[in-house]
């Protein structure tokens, strides 16, 4: 028997217990099998070493009271109600969701364009400075003072470019870090809500 077969069998044998109780048990045994496999056992071996499934079921049932009939019915009713609500509400929540999505994309696009603009400025500074410095001897032929002025201006431009490159890189890194942080927060919130039962 492999892991998913085992968990399915366990699930069917636990019928009648509270949903949360079943979920907890399945999570527990799923984790145990995963840990044994991670420790070098084959999946089938790991399942076999858990012992007799009926004993496992007995141990679980001895600890947890069976679900109350009325509660179960109400739960199913609730579920249907929620599904109907979701379907009926779709024109509202779907458009809200899309709008939210669009806002998120707009924010990202804005941030991206700011970063691109900053980098363009840096490149312009550096290129302009470099061209001015390199090209100034040609101007010096016609007018020495203008040439010297152009060298100075080029150097200043280039210096500005280096400074702003430094700042831009730091800012970009910060933005990326913040983005990763947001992503992790989001993922964690998402993971918590989702109970992980791998069948």
């Amino acid at each position: 028997m492999n892991k998913s077969e085992f968990l399915k069998l366990l699930y069917s044998k636990l019928a009648g217990l509270e949903d949360s109780e079943i979920k907890k048990s399945l999570n527990y045994y799923s984790e145990m099998i995963d840990d044994r496999v991670e420790d070098g056992e084959l999946e089938e071996e790991a399942v076999a070493s858990l012992g007799d499934i009926d004993e496992i079921v007995d141990d679980i049932q001895s600890q947890s009271p069976p679900a109350k009939q009325i509660k179960g019915k109400r739960k199913i009713g609730n579920k249907i109600f929620v599904i109907i609500l979701i379907i009926l509400g779709s024109p509202i929540w779907l458009s809200i969701l899309l709008a939210l999505f669009a806002v998120v994309i707009a924010i990202y696009a804005t941030v991206a364009s700011i970063i691109i603009a900053l980098f363009s400025v840096v490149v312009a500074f550096l290129l302009g400075g470099a061209v001015a410095v390199i090209g100034s001897p040609i101007i010096m032929y016609s007018n020495i003072y203008t040439g010297i002025f152009i060298i100075g201006a080029g150097l200043i431009l280039f210096g500005l470019g280096v400074f702003s490159a430094y700042g831009t890189v730091i800012l970009t890194k910060l933005i990326f870090k913040f983005n990763c942080f947001l992503g992790r927060k989001f993922k964690r919130a998402f993971f918590k809500k989702k109970s992980v039962v791998k069948i």
Binding site: E31, D35, L50
Partner: peptide
């Protein structure tokens, strides 16, 4: 975590997964 508890205590006392759970 569960599996490590079983391993850590195994030299002293045998606990199976199904015993540990309750």
């Amino acid at each position: 975590y569960g599996y490590r508890i079983i391993k850590d205590t195994s030299p002293f006392i045998k606990i199976s997964e199904s015993t540990l759970y309750p």
